[in-house]
Design a protein around this nucleic acid. Sequence first.
DNA 1: ATAAAATGCGGAAACGATTTCGAAATTATG
DNA 2: CATAATTTCGAAATCGTTTCCGCATTTTAT
Lengths: 340, 340
Amino acid sequence: MAGGISLKELAAELKLAPSTVSRALNDSYEISEATKKKVISMAEKLNYHANPFARSLRENKSKTIAVIIPERINNFFAQVMDGIEEIAQDQGYHLLIYNTHEDIERERKIVNLLLNGRADAIAMSVTSQTSDISHLKKLHDRGLPVIFFDRIRAEIPTTKFITNDYDSAFEGTKHLIQQGCKKVALLMLSKDLSISKERQRGYNDAIRSEGWEVDPALTLYCSHEEESNVRLIEELLNAPNRPDGILASVEKLAFATYMAVRKTNLSIPRDLKVISFSNASIAGLLNPSLTTITQPAFSIGNECAKLLIKKLTKPKHYDLVDQVITIPSKITIRESTMAN
Amino acid sequence: MAGGISLKELAAELKLAPSTVSRALNDSYEISEATKKKVISMAEKLNYHANPFARSLRENKSKTIAVIIPERINNFFAQVMDGIEEIAQDQGYHLLIYNTHEDIERERKIVNLLLNGRADAIAMSVTSQTSDISHLKKLHDRGLPVIFFDRIRAEIPTTKFITNDYDSAFEGTKHLIQQGCKKVALLMLSKDLSISKERQRGYNDAIRSEGWEVDPALTLYCSHEEESNVRLIEELLNAPNRPDGILASVEKLAFATYMAVRKTNLSIPRDLKVISFSNASIAGLLNPSLTTITQPAFSIGNECAKLLIKKLTKPKHYDLVDQVITIPSKITIRESTMAN
DNA sequence: ATAAAATGCGGAAACGATTTCGAAATTATG
DNA sequence: CATAATTTCGAAATCGTTTCCGCATTTTAT
């Protein structure tokens, strides 16, 4: 921009036509090797850089992928972004990143912003508040390649990546029971969330597989606000028939549980066992160390990017078919679920 | 892009000239209120969205800020990004985010990529490997507004945001000594890093203020690779004159210390006290809870974005003067530095 | 009543790249 | 040697905006 030289100026310097220079730089077959060399060396010398907007305008593509996440201070989403970036950087794509802060209004604004073509494709995980999905429909209807990961919306006919939420929740709950828990509670963000539903199904089935009833008082819908979550969980723990086991659907709720426990005179894992979906690398350093269900976040990011770029580079020969791809999570057992 | 309608088509629909429509949408004074209304309502009806590349090409600005960080799985940088995004989103700016993974080659590539004007401004924190800074010089010479935060390079004459690293390291070291430590070690990433130098100065002066000598064996330069760090720290802890206190310059080194300690038969804080620069919200949940020096990451991000946007909106009336702005950190004392 | 200024809008150039079409210049072919 | 085929390159259109300039028409000033 500031000291930038244009293709035309570069061409003038070389006493060549802009078209020739453009072709030379793009390694076109109709330019002789001799002039290619000349053009390239002069471009280097004059520090020429093609204006990306002129190119985007002409080619109708931006070499940019937008990533929309509900939360940044979250190891899962951070790892997904790293996974997306690895592929994207390698393929010359740039990443526009948006954090909705779990706010449906922001999500709507951002999605509408992306309707203008600023990004060639989108990878996203929806807000816990997202119920109306007309804005997502509009995106997809516009023909913009969209992939959902983790928090998906089945109604949008495209490819989605998730983990085996049902199985993990089932096994996690079973694990708590095997360790001696008689009353397992489930902590979630929102009932509208795809992951909530699946994980709740797994939890419910695990409870019932013991011949027990699912106690609605033990299924807690939290918010994205730490303090109120801690209060809510504290109340749960102080209730007359408090749980002796907790399955947290997201890592922040496990942390909130740890905080809440400190306000009571309970102790983990003696009085309460905790297992949580979490990608925190320091789960093992917590007090007590936390049993986790770790999602393959980096791989998910990788796969999202691969498919999006595949669609972008071979628009005719590849489609983001309406399917849900599941990559399994991994349970790591630690102190927080030790039997007494 | 796909179903997108252009300004010209919109104009045709309205039987107006493109210039008129453009002015109407941009709320120009030379267009009557009546036609403005007509244009706007038709634009809404036809779902018109201005092509950002055509506009960028014409106006020579992209409404985009690039953020370059060395690491994403890091609470400090995540919070800085949230801080930048808060201001940027509010002002209609988009964020291009790049992770260098502490790799100087990647940093160079990314910076060179940004030379073409894809972003209007840059906020960055350099790699721990960054010694040659010719690529950064080029950026600045090009006239691209650049702001450094935390890991800065004083040689580039622009505004930089840091925390009171010297003071924090000094006080942190003093705190360890007050809690009974006789041999305090310092863990850092790289000696080339601005923050390393400042924090080391603070550490050194604190040691000397006790009338002690600075023992070079207690100053450890680590890498960005977890496993080798754990090994390195483990060796340090198994050495004949092992430290009884550790000041970690970045949170990952505190975590590595916790890991290393578990491989020995030492115990924190009994045999080893630990304090660390860290923005981890769960420092209080570690085993034992970690005494931290917390940097005002979100505010730093906020300020970076504010100044960059100020420069972008008032290029003539404001300059990113060559100065270092310091925002103080806050020490939170927890179990890891408890006296015996 | 006439000059001056303000209002409202259209035409066309410009931003910087790519690409279609066509024309030289060179080489090959009969 | 003449013609065809092949290289190699140039002119101009194009992408979708914004803006400079110009031109009526209406309003205000003298």
